[in-house]
Write a protein that binds this DNA or RNA. Sequence first.
DNA 1: GACAAATTTTGAACATGTTCAGAAAAACAG
DNA 2: CTGTTTTTCTGAACATGTTCAAAATTTGTC
Lengths: 238, 238
Amino acid sequence: MFTPTAGRAVRQRAASEETRRQILQTALVLFRERGFDQTTMRDIAGRAGLALGAAYYYFKGKEALVGAYYDFVQQEHLVRARAAFAKGGGLRERLRAALHTKIDIMQGDQRLLRALFRYGGDPDHPLSWFGPASREQRQLSIGVFEEALAGEKLPDDVREVAPTLLWTLHMGVLLYFLYDESPSQRKTRTLIDDAVDFTVDAKRIATLPLMRSVRRRVLNILRVAGLLGETVPVATNL
Amino acid sequence: MFTPTAGRAVRQRAASEETRRQILQTALVLFRERGFDQTTMRDIAGRAGLALGAAYYYFKGKEALVGAYYDFVQQEHLVRARAAFAKGGGLRERLRAALHTKIDIMQGDQRLLRALFRYGGDPDHPLSWFGPASREQRQLSIGVFEEALAGEKLPDDVREVAPTLLWTLHMGVLLYFLYDESPSQRKTRTLIDDAVDFTVDAKRIATLPLMRSVRRRVLNILRVAGLLGETVPVATNL
DNA sequence: GACAAATTTTGAACATGTTCAGAAAAACAG
DNA sequence: CTGTTTTTCTGAACATGTTCAAAATTTGTC
């Protein structure tokens, strides 16, 4: 374990990761500076002090660089949201935190995010928002909202769908954010606060016992459509 | 007017349009056959019996071909939806028709549509779903839902937002359709029917006079966010 | 230290979207 | 019909994402 051999291996692994980090950082700087399309792989490699091929040794392609950024955002979101949750507060505060922290992280990267979103619609694409390739990512993202609801008393059926619905809201907010050119994305912040207020009220109404049949109806639509849970569907469909 | 000169001009214009149509048709055949990415501009030009540059003479680029397809879909949707509306029927029938006709047209073109959707997320892109570049297209699309509601008695505030909300639902259905691999997209059809039923009921409840304040609240959120109407916003914001 | 194996790096080559200067064809004016 | 202008078409050239065989470097083994 402490042999010089292992030591060398560790050093090399560290060096390798450092190079990888270097390339990614350079890429992000350039993406932010001049946009995704205007940045060539040659630019990135060159500015990182490497030949073109080296960039491809560390990243499968240009999109992989964006993918790595997205990984970072997800990770950071979990950390920040948890920190905010730890401070206590009611549902309203927790939902706000979940959404605001996400925007905090992405603030100033709208241009880059547009490049990411570009691939979202294609289910076959690894960076798709909804496709199977990004299921793991999506589950992590939904998990944040699950944690936001951790302390709430909720009917079982609501608890099952609420995180996914909140995630959908969050995607909507992101979409809005993408287009929001107001200073400091003030409009997105307002939208979040208003939407959360509305959501909290809606939750109060939706969880009333007398709403059970309405809930059942909506849930049934979603379930039949296969929009709930990503577990493998058994032959229980229509 | 009937000079041989004008006759020639007309003939040439017709020939030109024919070539354009030819290129577009060839492109669509190839897109459907082997997918958008796997089809090269050289393939298209070659199979249309032209040199590479000619394709670019008629279409600004590869995406323009997809854009032309989208134009066709929109036009066809309006025609088919109107035909269905003319047959009478209540709100439920009209909404179903508006959504089903759209899917009818796109049936079998999921692969192609994914390629189109790819560009949807980038507001700077001419093929974006929400960006200013496609505003006209979007207005046309929203117009179909406006017509679907033409006969309904609706409070003014509802009439103002309903078409846009229905359009949003329609985008959601489209997204679902994109991923729907059930035979004949049966699942999408079911989703449409269920969603329409729910919408019709929701409309009944939402238009009750005692819901006015709730409506006002929701509308306010949307309005502040600038999500309603695409008229130039005057300095009436927060 | 010397050799083998694994890792990292290089840069040329390729594929394909796009541009463009000019050739070819058609339309037009006299 | 002839010359001119406009439209259509050509194919070479270019930019850039990606691949890949081979070189360079590092690591592991003796």
